[in-house]
Simulated assay, not measured.
Amino acid sequence: MAHSHHDHAGHSHEGHSHSAKGIPKQRLLQALGISLIITVAQIIGGVISGSLALMSDALHTATDAVALLASFIAVKLGERPGSEKHTFGLKRAEIVAAAMNAGVLIGISLWLLYEATLRFIHPDSVKAGWMIGVAAIGLTANVINALLLQKGAKDNINMRSAYLHVLSDAVVSVGVILGGIAIMYLGKGFTWIDPMLTVLISLWLIKESWSIVEESIRIIMMGTPPGIEVKEVAAALTELKAVRGVHHLHIWSLNDQTIHFEAHIDIDDRLVSECSCVADEIEDLLHDKYEITHVTLQFESGRCEDEALIRSHDTL
């Protein structure tokens, strides 16, 4: 049995934390404070103006605060080392937080679609001046938050879900401002613009959030990472001179940064000490070609009767 984090050749890729290093935790707290202040302002402005779009903006900002708090807690949990109770540590806390944040966005978007439908049926007056003014304040705050969280959002699903929250609010604020301007200059007959903007924004949020939910579910369910074909990996390994066959193969993600690999490797009978060179060669190939950093290999020589690449009833 060979096990590696791929550090034998001077590499040290295991244990990277894009969330902790790419996004300083204090930035999450700063964004949280801004979101709480703006939420109160938007709720007051929404009540005074009667704007559903502005109230939706306030609700989104409120969920931003919850999402940012959840992301911060998840980062802290993810930094904890492995223990006897959690041998992998709590690295998947960020995946759970991402799924929760995206799920909340989808839920709120569906509720706003319902409210927008009611507003279409029973139109209400909107005070465009208040609508524009408060939305402009919200836009400023959301742009600041987006800039705070932008770094690392591409490489970390937890940060991406938090970033999507504040980015979506910025988009909502732009929509509210444009809607307020239209109502101000076109008249009360165009108040339908307010719920229409809510519908468009909600549909966009559902689309963006669902991609995060899908990725989170794939990781939690230990699905094969995108861009990696199991048969292709097995074929590449069997091209190595020392490898006669590969079976009982598993590839999964611990989180969105660490890919794990384990398999039975059939080789010619040899001393255990002579397997190290084979292990190094396999680990180099998996790292360089597929960015797999955590490798567990079980070397054997004609031991398994079932040499299926993937066992249909296998357990880890």
Rank of each mutant, 00 (worst) to 15 (best):
M1G: 13
A2Q: 03
H3A: 08
H3T: 03
H5A: 08
H6W: 13
H6N: 15
H8F: 10
A9W: 11
H11F: 09
H11E: 06
S12C: 05
H13R: 13
E14V: 07
E14K: 06
G15Y: 06
S19H: 03
K21D: 04
G22I: 03
G22W: 01
P24I: 05
P24N: 14
K25G: 12
K25S: 14
L29E: 08
A31Y: 09
L32S: 15
I37G: 14
I38E: 03
V40A: 15
S49R: 04
G50L: 09
S51P: 08
S51D: 08
L54Y: 02
M55R: 08
L59N: 05
L59H: 02
H60K: 04
A62P: 10
A62H: 03
A67N: 04
L69A: 15
A70R: 03
A74S: 10
K76C: 14
L77I: 07
G78T: 02
E79C: 14
G82A: 13
H86D: 08
H86R: 14
G89P: 05
L90S: 05
K91D: 05
E94D: 11
E94R: 11
V96N: 09
M100H: 09
M100P: 08
N101K: 07
V104P: 03
L110D: 03
L113Y: 13
R119Q: 12
H122F: 09
P123H: 11
D124F: 13
D124E: 15
S125D: 13
S125P: 13
G129I: 15
W130S: 09
A136H: 06
L139A: 14
A141P: 02
V143P: 02
I144G: 04
L147K: 12
L148P: 01
K151A: 15
D155R: 13
N156E: 10
M159C: 12
R160V: 05
S161G: 14
S161V: 11
S161W: 09
Y163H: 15
S168M: 14
V171H: 07
V172D: 12
S173I: 07
S173G: 08
V176G: 10
G179T: 07
G180I: 01
L186D: 10
G187A: 06
K188F: 06
P195M: 04
S202H: 02
L203R: 08
L205E: 01
K207M: 11
E208A: 14
S211I: 15
I212D: 00
E214I: 14
E214W: 11
T224K: 12
T224F: 06
I228H: 04
E229R: 14
K231F: 05
K231H: 13
E232G: 04
E232T: 10
V233D: 00
A234H: 00
A235T: 02
A236S: 13
A236H: 01
L240W: 00
A242G: 01
V243F: 00
H247M: 08
H248G: 00
I251W: 02
L254M: 14
T258S: 12
I259R: 04
F261T: 02
E262Y: 02
I265Y: 00
D268Y: 01
R270S: 15
L271A: 13
L271K: 13
V272W: 11
E274M: 06
C275I: 06
V278P: 00
E281G: 00
D284E: 12
L285Q: 02
E291V: 05
I292T: 01
H294K: 06
T296L: 11
F299D: 01
S301E: 07
S301I: 07
E307F: 00
L309Y: 09
L309G: 04
S312K: 13
T315D: 09
L316I: 05
L316P: 05
